[in-house]
Amino acid sequence: MNTDEKVIEVKGLEKSFDDIEVLKGIDIDIHKCEVVVIIGASGSGKSTFLRCLNCLEDPTGGCIYFDGVDLADVSVDINVHRQNMGMVFQHFNLFPHMTVLRNMTIAPMKLKGLSAEEAENKAYELLKTVGLEDRADAYPSQLSGGQKQRIAIVRALAMEPEVMLFDEPTSALDPEMVGEVLDVMKNLAKEGMTMVVVTHEMGFAREVGDRIIFMDDGVIGEEGTPEEVFDHPKSERLQSFLAKVL
């Protein structure tokens, strides 16, 4: 269901931490309404790549264009662009000193100038979609891991982003809670949200992904449709990776 309109364009992206080269030149386009799933072994640079998209890491080389704007350009206000890019973290990172409702309304109110009522209506609407409308007044510490992650997703959605980035959203969850989070993500994909997902959930990747990227040692090892990548892996590295995880 992807269109030709490019939302994110990455050209020759490089990232080093001191002497360690994590990303060694990544080129990728992400189109509107596309669900791109990034898989790969630990340390292959998946998370670093995702964090670069949101400028949580500053690339050491290459360019990232978001809606045609070069994010590395110093004159660009990265904070404005981040409002259009929702991010979901492995460890949820909910704000523990705020209620669920406040977690979801603070950014729209302070950054988009929504009134408290508008922001709360929007938040309740979103909470309903993930079945947590009764937890609006709870604090994050009172929620289960799966609930926390669902809240983290709708918190990001409350800013009505164009793209959603998921950094191993189910890796810190107990196994029985993985499903509820993946269901939310599946629904989001169905609604046509542009998504970039780093995950170890191969079932999810195959079912929801429009395109699978296999990252290997800082470069894109292989990419293609789920069928191509999972059923007919070409490279040896991908074959051995899939043999281990499937």
């Binding site: 904070n79 981040r82 704000f95 800013m159």
Partner: peptide, 27 residues
């Protein structure tokens, strides 16, 4: 305060000062 809190704040679009004021300092 956990670095993830700053990252969550920044990823929502808050600038450094707003992240400090609304998220880090209260904790």
């Amino acid at each position: 305060i956990d670095k993830g809190q700053t990252e969550a704040g920044r990823s929502l679009g808050f600038n450094y000062g707003q992240t400090m004021f609304y998220i880090i300092i209260p904790q």
